[in-house]
Nucleic acid binder design. Structure first.
Lengths: 167, 167
DNA sequence: ATAAACTTTCAATAATTATTGAAAGTTTAA
DNA sequence: TTAAACTTTCAATAATTATTGAAAGTTTAT
Protein backbone atom coordinates (compact mmCIF):
# COMPACT_ATOMS: atom_id res chain seq x y z
CA UNK A 1 0.00 0.00 0.00
CA UNK A 2 1.40 3.40 -0.99
CA UNK A 3 1.11 6.71 0.80
CA UNK A 4 -1.96 7.97 -1.05
CA UNK A 5 -3.92 4.75 -0.58
CA UNK A 6 -2.99 4.57 3.08
CA UNK A 7 -3.95 8.20 3.61
CA UNK A 8 -7.30 7.71 1.89
CA UNK A 9 -8.02 4.57 3.82
CA UNK A 10 -7.19 6.21 7.12
CA UNK A 11 -9.27 9.32 6.41
CA UNK A 12 -12.33 7.43 5.28
CA UNK A 13 -12.17 4.86 8.09
CA UNK A 14 -11.78 7.56 10.68
CA UNK A 15 -14.64 9.39 9.03
CA UNK A 16 -17.06 6.50 9.17
CA UNK A 17 -16.01 5.98 12.76
CA UNK A 18 -17.19 9.48 13.56
CA UNK A 19 -20.47 8.10 14.87
CA UNK A 20 -18.58 6.16 17.53
CA UNK A 21 -17.34 9.33 19.11
CA UNK A 22 -20.44 11.33 18.30
CA UNK A 23 -19.52 13.62 15.43
CA UNK A 24 -20.40 13.61 11.74
CA UNK A 25 -18.45 12.14 8.86
CA UNK A 26 -17.07 15.34 7.35
CA UNK A 27 -16.00 16.58 10.75
CA UNK A 28 -14.13 13.37 11.51
CA UNK A 29 -12.51 13.35 8.07
CA UNK A 30 -11.26 16.90 8.39
CA UNK A 31 -9.76 16.06 11.76
CA UNK A 32 -8.15 12.93 10.33
CA UNK A 33 -6.65 14.91 7.48
CA UNK A 34 -5.16 17.48 9.83
CA UNK A 35 -3.97 14.75 12.16
CA UNK A 36 -1.61 13.27 9.59
CA UNK A 37 -0.65 16.49 7.86
CA UNK A 38 2.87 17.78 8.39
CA UNK A 39 1.77 21.40 8.09
CA UNK A 40 -1.34 23.51 8.75
CA UNK A 41 -3.97 23.32 6.02
CA UNK A 42 -6.16 26.05 4.53
CA UNK A 43 -9.83 25.71 3.73
CA UNK A 44 -8.90 25.33 0.07
CA UNK A 45 -6.55 22.47 0.90
CA UNK A 46 -9.23 20.64 2.85
CA UNK A 47 -11.94 21.20 0.23
CA UNK A 48 -9.67 19.88 -2.49
CA UNK A 49 -8.49 16.84 -0.56
CA UNK A 50 -11.89 15.78 0.70
CA UNK A 51 -13.98 16.98 -2.24
CA UNK A 52 -16.41 18.84 -0.06
CA UNK A 53 -17.92 22.30 -0.45
CA UNK A 54 -16.69 25.50 1.07
CA UNK A 55 -19.76 25.82 3.29
CA UNK A 56 -19.41 22.32 4.62
CA UNK A 57 -15.74 22.83 5.35
CA UNK A 58 -16.36 26.10 7.11
CA UNK A 59 -19.15 24.73 9.29
CA UNK A 60 -17.30 21.61 10.31
CA UNK A 61 -14.09 23.46 11.06
CA UNK A 62 -16.06 25.73 13.32
CA UNK A 63 -17.49 22.71 15.16
CA UNK A 64 -14.05 21.18 15.55
CA UNK A 65 -12.87 24.46 17.04
CA UNK A 66 -15.88 24.46 19.38
CA UNK A 67 -14.82 21.01 20.55
CA UNK A 68 -11.34 22.41 21.15
CA UNK A 69 -9.73 19.88 18.84
CA UNK A 70 -8.73 22.21 16.04
CA UNK A 71 -7.13 25.64 16.22
CA UNK A 72 -6.58 28.45 13.73
CA UNK A 73 -3.02 29.11 12.79
CA UNK A 74 -2.03 32.51 11.49
CA UNK A 75 0.74 32.28 8.95
CA UNK A 76 2.54 35.63 8.62
CA UNK A 77 2.22 37.18 5.21
CA UNK A 78 -0.67 34.85 4.27
CA UNK A 79 -4.18 36.15 3.84
CA UNK A 80 -5.82 32.73 4.26
CA UNK A 81 -6.51 31.07 7.59
CA UNK A 82 -4.77 27.82 8.35
CA UNK A 83 -5.81 25.02 10.67
CA UNK A 84 -4.12 22.42 12.82
CA UNK A 85 -5.41 19.71 15.15
CA UNK A 86 -4.13 18.49 18.47
CA UNK A 87 -1.40 16.02 17.53
CA UNK A 88 -1.01 14.16 20.81
CA UNK A 89 -3.41 11.22 20.98
CA UNK A 90 -3.59 11.23 24.77
CA UNK A 91 -4.56 14.87 24.81
CA UNK A 92 -7.01 14.28 21.97
CA UNK A 93 -8.67 11.47 23.91
CA UNK A 94 -8.83 13.69 26.99
CA UNK A 95 -10.60 16.48 25.11
CA UNK A 96 -13.06 14.15 23.39
CA UNK A 97 -13.95 12.27 26.56
CA UNK A 98 -14.46 15.48 28.47
CA UNK A 99 -16.71 16.97 25.80
CA UNK A 100 -18.81 13.85 25.38
CA UNK A 101 -19.24 13.58 29.10
CA UNK A 102 -20.39 17.18 29.28
CA UNK A 103 -22.63 17.07 26.23
CA UNK A 104 -24.21 13.65 26.50
CA UNK A 105 -23.50 11.74 29.68
CA UNK A 106 -24.16 14.48 32.22
CA UNK A 107 -27.68 15.25 30.88
CA UNK A 108 -28.59 11.57 31.03
CA UNK A 109 -27.30 11.23 34.56
CA UNK A 110 -29.47 14.18 35.49
CA UNK A 111 -32.61 12.56 34.05
CA UNK A 112 -31.83 9.21 35.66
CA UNK A 113 -31.45 10.90 39.02
CA UNK A 114 -34.74 12.73 38.52
CA UNK A 115 -36.65 9.62 37.46
CA UNK A 116 -35.19 7.43 40.20
CA UNK A 117 -36.20 10.03 42.76
CA UNK A 118 -39.97 9.92 42.23
CA UNK A 119 -41.97 9.15 45.35
CA UNK A 120 -42.53 5.48 45.97
CA UNK A 121 -46.30 4.95 45.86
CA UNK A 122 -45.89 1.37 47.02
CA UNK A 123 -46.88 -0.29 43.73
CA UNK A 124 -44.62 -2.93 42.30
CA UNK A 125 -44.12 -1.13 38.98
CA UNK A 126 -43.01 2.06 40.72
CA UNK A 127 -40.58 0.09 42.86
CA UNK A 128 -39.15 -1.53 39.73
CA UNK A 129 -38.81 1.79 37.90
CA UNK A 130 -36.99 3.30 40.86
CA UNK A 131 -34.75 0.29 41.34
CA UNK A 132 -33.74 -0.05 37.71
CA UNK A 133 -33.17 3.61 36.96
CA UNK A 134 -31.18 3.91 40.19
CA UNK A 135 -28.95 1.03 39.10
CA UNK A 136 -28.50 2.66 35.71
CA UNK A 137 -27.72 5.97 37.36
CA UNK A 138 -25.05 4.43 39.55
CA UNK A 139 -23.46 2.56 36.66
CA UNK A 140 -23.46 5.59 34.38
CA UNK A 141 -22.07 7.80 37.09
CA UNK A 142 -19.32 5.32 37.92
CA UNK A 143 -18.39 4.83 34.26
CA UNK A 144 -18.33 8.57 33.67
CA UNK A 145 -16.12 9.13 36.73
CA UNK A 146 -13.73 6.45 35.58
CA UNK A 147 -13.47 7.79 32.05
CA UNK A 148 -12.80 11.28 33.28
CA UNK A 149 -10.25 10.22 35.83
CA UNK A 150 -8.42 7.90 33.47
CA UNK A 151 -8.39 10.42 30.72
CA UNK A 152 -7.22 13.22 32.93
CA UNK A 153 -4.01 11.46 33.74
CA UNK A 154 -1.62 12.99 31.30
CA UNK A 155 1.04 10.37 31.76
CA UNK A 156 0.77 7.05 30.11
CA UNK A 157 2.14 5.05 33.03
CA UNK A 158 -1.17 5.16 34.81
CA UNK A 159 -2.91 3.45 31.94
CA UNK A 160 -0.23 0.82 31.87
CA UNK A 161 -0.36 0.18 35.58
CA UNK A 162 -4.13 -0.15 35.62
CA UNK A 163 -3.94 -2.52 32.74
CA UNK A 164 -1.52 -4.68 34.66
CA UNK A 165 -4.07 -5.05 37.43
CA UNK A 166 -6.39 -6.88 35.09
CA UNK A 167 -3.93 -8.97 33.15
CA UNK B 1 -43.51 13.49 39.01
CA UNK B 2 -45.88 10.50 38.84
CA UNK B 3 -45.19 7.01 37.54
CA UNK B 4 -46.39 7.57 33.99
CA UNK B 5 -44.42 10.78 33.52
CA UNK B 6 -41.30 9.22 34.99
CA UNK B 7 -41.68 6.17 32.77
CA UNK B 8 -42.15 8.29 29.66
CA UNK B 9 -39.22 10.49 30.54
CA UNK B 10 -36.97 7.52 31.12
CA UNK B 11 -37.99 5.73 27.92
CA UNK B 12 -37.59 8.76 25.71
CA UNK B 13 -34.29 9.84 27.27
CA UNK B 14 -32.87 6.37 26.96
CA UNK B 15 -34.13 6.31 23.39
CA UNK B 16 -32.45 9.52 22.34
CA UNK B 17 -29.32 8.25 24.04
CA UNK B 18 -29.32 5.26 21.70
CA UNK B 19 -26.80 6.96 19.45
CA UNK B 20 -24.32 7.04 22.32
CA UNK B 21 -24.20 3.28 22.45
CA UNK B 22 -24.67 2.85 18.73
CA UNK B 23 -28.26 1.68 18.25
CA UNK B 24 -31.35 3.38 16.93
CA UNK B 25 -34.08 5.16 18.84
CA UNK B 26 -36.82 2.55 18.63
CA UNK B 27 -34.41 -0.19 19.62
CA UNK B 28 -33.25 1.72 22.68
CA UNK B 29 -36.82 2.59 23.65
CA UNK B 30 -37.97 -1.00 23.45
CA UNK B 31 -35.07 -2.04 25.64
CA UNK B 32 -35.86 0.74 28.11
CA UNK B 33 -39.47 -0.34 28.28
CA UNK B 34 -38.56 -3.94 28.99
CA UNK B 35 -35.93 -2.84 31.47
CA UNK B 36 -38.47 -1.27 33.81
CA UNK B 37 -41.31 -3.70 33.16
CA UNK B 38 -42.21 -6.11 35.96
CA UNK B 39 -43.28 -8.79 33.48
CA UNK B 40 -42.46 -9.92 29.95
CA UNK B 41 -44.15 -7.87 27.22
CA UNK B 42 -45.74 -8.98 23.95
CA UNK B 43 -45.33 -7.24 20.63
CA UNK B 44 -48.79 -5.77 21.08
CA UNK B 45 -47.81 -4.34 24.46
CA UNK B 46 -44.73 -2.68 23.02
CA UNK B 47 -46.54 -1.32 19.95
CA UNK B 48 -49.23 0.19 22.13
CA UNK B 49 -46.86 1.70 24.68
CA UNK B 50 -44.42 3.19 22.19
CA UNK B 51 -46.89 3.94 19.38
CA UNK B 52 -44.80 2.22 16.77
CA UNK B 53 -45.80 -0.15 13.98
CA UNK B 54 -45.76 -3.91 14.06
CA UNK B 55 -42.99 -4.10 11.48
CA UNK B 56 -40.80 -1.69 13.36
CA UNK B 57 -41.31 -3.55 16.62
CA UNK B 58 -40.55 -6.89 15.02
CA UNK B 59 -37.36 -5.70 13.36
CA UNK B 60 -35.99 -3.97 16.41
CA UNK B 61 -36.78 -6.85 18.72
CA UNK B 62 -34.87 -9.09 16.37
CA UNK B 63 -31.88 -6.75 16.52
CA UNK B 64 -32.01 -6.64 20.31
CA UNK B 65 -32.00 -10.43 20.31
CA UNK B 66 -29.01 -10.40 17.93
CA UNK B 67 -27.20 -8.20 20.42
CA UNK B 68 -28.07 -10.72 23.11
CA UNK B 69 -29.83 -8.13 25.23
CA UNK B 70 -33.39 -9.36 24.81
CA UNK B 71 -34.74 -12.90 24.95
CA UNK B 72 -37.99 -14.53 23.99
CA UNK B 73 -40.05 -15.83 26.83
CA UNK B 74 -42.58 -18.57 26.22
CA UNK B 75 -45.58 -18.25 28.46
CA UNK B 76 -47.45 -21.58 28.75
CA UNK B 77 -50.93 -21.47 27.33
CA UNK B 78 -50.23 -18.21 25.48
CA UNK B 79 -50.04 -18.05 21.73
CA UNK B 80 -48.12 -14.76 21.62
CA UNK B 81 -44.42 -14.41 22.13
CA UNK B 82 -43.20 -12.44 25.10
CA UNK B 83 -39.95 -10.60 25.58
CA UNK B 84 -37.65 -9.72 28.45
CA UNK B 85 -34.36 -7.88 28.68
CA UNK B 86 -31.31 -8.50 30.81
CA UNK B 87 -32.14 -6.83 34.11
CA UNK B 88 -28.71 -6.63 35.67
CA UNK B 89 -26.99 -3.40 34.65
CA UNK B 90 -23.49 -4.84 35.06
CA UNK B 91 -24.30 -7.71 32.77
CA UNK B 92 -26.02 -5.35 30.33
CA UNK B 93 -22.92 -3.16 30.21
CA UNK B 94 -20.77 -6.23 29.66
CA UNK B 95 -22.83 -7.36 26.68
CA UNK B 96 -22.98 -3.93 25.09
CA UNK B 97 -19.27 -3.24 25.50
CA UNK B 98 -18.38 -6.62 24.06
CA UNK B 99 -20.64 -6.17 21.05
CA UNK B 100 -19.47 -2.65 20.29
CA UNK B 101 -15.90 -3.74 20.56
CA UNK B 102 -16.51 -6.57 18.15
CA UNK B 103 -18.62 -4.59 15.68
CA UNK B 104 -16.87 -1.24 15.63
CA UNK B 105 -13.59 -1.04 17.49
CA UNK B 106 -11.92 -4.20 16.20
CA UNK B 107 -12.39 -3.27 12.51
CA UNK B 108 -10.88 0.14 13.14
CA UNK B 109 -7.92 -1.34 14.96
CA UNK B 110 -7.37 -3.60 11.99
CA UNK B 111 -7.30 -0.67 9.55
CA UNK B 112 -5.03 1.38 11.81
CA UNK B 113 -2.62 -1.50 11.98
CA UNK B 114 -2.69 -1.88 8.22
CA UNK B 115 -2.17 1.80 7.53
CA UNK B 116 0.58 2.20 10.12
CA UNK B 117 2.40 -0.74 8.56
CA UNK B 118 3.00 0.73 5.11
CA UNK B 119 6.63 0.80 4.06
CA UNK B 120 8.49 3.92 5.05
CA UNK B 121 9.60 5.58 1.82
CA UNK B 122 11.65 8.12 3.77
CA UNK B 123 9.44 11.14 3.03
CA UNK B 124 8.32 13.29 5.90
CA UNK B 125 4.62 12.87 5.14
CA UNK B 126 4.89 9.09 5.18
CA UNK B 127 6.77 9.20 8.46
CA UNK B 128 4.04 11.38 9.93
CA UNK B 129 1.25 9.11 8.68
CA UNK B 130 2.95 6.08 10.19
CA UNK B 131 3.71 7.82 13.46
CA UNK B 132 0.22 9.22 13.98
CA UNK B 133 -1.76 6.14 12.95
CA UNK B 134 0.53 4.03 15.13
CA UNK B 135 -0.19 6.26 18.11
CA UNK B 136 -3.91 6.02 17.38
CA UNK B 137 -3.64 2.27 17.04
CA UNK B 138 -1.93 1.93 20.41
CA UNK B 139 -4.42 4.18 22.14
CA UNK B 140 -7.44 2.45 20.62
CA UNK B 141 -6.04 -0.96 21.43
CA UNK B 142 -5.31 0.02 25.02
CA UNK B 143 -8.73 1.58 25.50
CA UNK B 144 -10.43 -1.46 24.02
CA UNK B 145 -8.46 -3.80 26.26
CA UNK B 146 -9.35 -1.78 29.30
CA UNK B 147 -13.03 -1.64 28.50
CA UNK B 148 -13.18 -5.34 27.94
CA UNK B 149 -11.27 -6.21 31.05
CA UNK B 150 -13.21 -3.85 33.27
CA UNK B 151 -16.49 -4.97 31.90
CA UNK B 152 -15.66 -8.62 32.20
CA UNK B 153 -15.30 -8.39 35.93
CA UNK B 154 -18.66 -9.53 37.16
CA UNK B 155 -18.18 -8.20 40.65
CA UNK B 156 -18.55 -4.58 41.41
CA UNK B 157 -15.65 -4.41 43.87
CA UNK B 158 -13.17 -4.18 41.05
CA UNK B 159 -14.75 -1.06 39.73
CA UNK B 160 -14.74 0.44 43.19
CA UNK B 161 -11.12 -0.45 43.85
CA UNK B 162 -9.98 0.97 40.53
CA UNK B 163 -11.88 4.10 41.23
CA UNK B 164 -10.10 4.49 44.56
CA UNK B 165 -6.77 4.49 42.74
CA UNK B 166 -7.69 7.72 41.03
CA UNK B 167 -9.45 9.56 43.82
C1' DA C 1 -13.34 54.71 0.22
C1' DT C 2 -12.86 50.84 -2.80
C1' DA C 3 -11.94 46.45 -4.25
C1' DA C 4 -9.90 42.09 -3.81
C1' DA C 5 -9.42 38.04 -0.95
C1' DC C 6 -11.23 35.55 1.92
C1' DT C 7 -15.07 33.40 5.40
C1' DT C 8 -19.71 32.68 7.05
C1' DT C 9 -24.51 31.95 6.70
C1' DC C 10 -28.56 29.66 5.36
C1' DA C 11 -32.40 28.22 2.29
C1' DA C 12 -32.64 24.66 -0.99
C1' DT C 13 -31.53 20.02 -2.07
C1' DA C 14 -29.53 15.57 -1.64
C1' DA C 15 -28.37 11.54 0.94
C1' DT C 16 -29.21 8.66 4.56
C1' DT C 17 -31.81 6.31 7.91
C1' DA C 18 -36.12 4.98 10.21
C1' DT C 19 -40.87 3.68 9.87
C1' DT C 20 -45.00 1.99 8.00
C1' DG C 21 -48.39 -1.31 6.52
C1' DA C 22 -49.92 -4.85 3.94
C1' DA C 23 -48.76 -9.22 1.78
C1' DA C 24 -46.43 -13.41 2.60
C1' DG C 25 -44.95 -16.66 5.92
C1' DT C 26 -45.37 -19.61 10.07
C1' DT C 27 -47.37 -22.06 13.86
C1' DT C 28 -51.04 -24.07 16.46
C1' DA C 29 -55.58 -25.96 17.45
C1' DA C 30 -59.38 -28.39 16.11
C1' DT D 1 -56.42 -29.84 6.20
C1' DT D 2 -58.16 -25.58 7.28
C1' DA D 3 -58.40 -21.40 9.45
C1' DA D 4 -57.26 -18.40 12.99
C1' DA D 5 -53.53 -16.19 15.45
C1' DC D 6 -49.63 -14.61 15.22
C1' DT D 7 -44.73 -12.91 13.10
C1' DT D 8 -41.69 -11.51 9.42
C1' DT D 9 -40.41 -9.25 5.28
C1' DC D 10 -39.80 -5.52 2.29
C1' DA D 11 -41.05 -1.88 -1.09
C1' DA D 12 -42.87 2.54 -0.41
C1' DT D 13 -42.73 6.66 2.26
C1' DA D 14 -41.55 9.73 5.89
C1' DA D 15 -38.30 11.85 8.90
C1' DT D 16 -33.89 13.22 9.80
C1' DT D 17 -29.38 14.74 8.85
C1' DA D 18 -25.68 16.33 5.80
C1' DT D 19 -24.23 19.04 1.93
C1' DT D 20 -24.23 22.53 -1.45
C1' DG D 21 -23.60 27.02 -3.46
C1' DA D 22 -24.37 31.59 -3.86
C1' DA D 23 -25.34 35.83 -1.43
C1' DA D 24 -23.98 38.40 2.45
C1' DG D 25 -20.41 39.48 5.57
C1' DT D 26 -15.60 40.57 6.98
C1' DT D 27 -10.88 41.89 6.69
C1' DT D 28 -6.89 43.85 4.56
C1' DA D 29 -4.20 46.55 1.29
C1' DT D 30 -3.88 50.51 -1.35
Amino acid sequence: MNYDDAKMKFVSTWGSLGSLWGINKAMAQIQALLFISIKPLSMEDIMADLHISRGNTSMNLRQLMDWGIVTKEIIPGERKEYFTTEKDVQELARIIAKERSRREIQPVIKVLKEVSSITDDGTEKTKELIKQTKALHDLTQTADDMINKLVNQKQNWITKSVLKLFK
